[in-house]
Amino acid sequence: MLEFKNVTFKYLEYDYEMLNDLSFSVEKGEFVSIIGASGCGKSTIFRLINGLEKMQSGEIFINEDSIKNLKNYSAYMPQKDLLFPWRTIGDNLSLPMEIQKIKKSDRENRVLEILKEVGLSDYKDKFPKELSGGMRQRVSFARTLLTGSELLLLDEPFSALDSLTRILMQEWLLEEWKHFNKTILFITHDVEEAIFLSKSIFVIQDNPITHMERIEVPLEYPRSRSSMQKPEIIELKESLISRLRQKVNI
């Protein structure tokens, strides 16, 4: 579904490249995580997919079409929920559909449907300040879904949550991914989170990024927390941490 083909990119204010001749692909319906040291270029990859930055060379394709020719092909969910505090939850969810000029009655119906799906049917008329952190992230994810895009880019969406809420949100996200059958590219610094969620993990070790090592996670779906204690998973976790530790300067 997603393909990077020989992509090279540098920010104009810097002398060095972030990506150099990078190629990789993600299949439709996959859940793939990207891990790497801070500042290695993970979020830059998302910005390029969204067309927020212009690459120096190469091409990015969605379903074999260049993103230069496409609109509304991906949706982005950042670390912060970015809900507008002056809008109700229902109105926040309506925003992507307002931008697409979908008529009001259809917007309202879809908002009610998605609120039911994410377990927040009673919160349509509440304001963001009245919701917990986990609830706000569920709303943010629901808003991402309502863009209608098949490719979802999730940039450390659970990093600010407490550990228990984060675990519950990870389990919830897998259920939603299975239900909506979206393709998800997920950035995280948490190796265990990447393993629990992903079919495959891309590991960034180069600077600039010239390639990403792809590692398959040896777990079937659905997954449970007990599966994280399997010897092969513990070994994988230690291997990934070792790879990342080599690139971290303290």
Rank of each mutant, 00 (worst) to 15 (best):
E171T: 00
L185Y: 14
E193A: 09
Q170C: 09
L168A: 08
L185P: 10
F196Y: 14
H179Q: 08
H189K: 06
I195V: 15
L174W: 00
T165R: 05
I167K: 02
S198E: 14
K199N: 15
I187K: 12
L197S: 02
I167F: 09
I201N: 15
L168G: 08
L174H: 00
S200N: 13
S200I: 15
I184H: 07
S200V: 15
F196D: 14
I201F: 10
S198W: 10
K199Y: 13
L173G: 00
H179Y: 06
L168F: 11
N181Q: 09
E171A: 06
L168R: 08
T188H: 08
V203D: 10
H189D: 10
Q170S: 06
E171G: 03
F186G: 12
H179M: 04
D190M: 12
K178D: 00
T188E: 03
E192S: 09
K199H: 12
F180R: 06
I201P: 14
T165G: 02
D190A: 09
V191E: 13
E176L: 11
F202E: 09
S198N: 07
W177V: 03
K178A: 03
N181W: 08
E175L: 03
L173A: 01
F202Y: 15
L173M: 02
I167Q: 13
W172P: 03
K178L: 06
K178W: 00
E175I: 07
F196C: 11
I201S: 09
K178N: 00
L173P: 01
F186I: 06
T165H: 04
V203T: 12
E171V: 02
T188V: 12
I195P: 11
V191W: 15
F202K: 15
L173C: 00
E175P: 01
W177A: 06
L197I: 09
N181H: 05
M169G: 00
K182M: 05
A194S: 15
R166S: 00
I184R: 07
H179T: 08
A194T: 15
I195E: 13
H179P: 02
V203R: 08
T183C: 05
T188G: 04
F202A: 15
I184T: 02
L197D: 07
L174D: 00
I167L: 05
F180A: 01
F180V: 10
E171N: 05
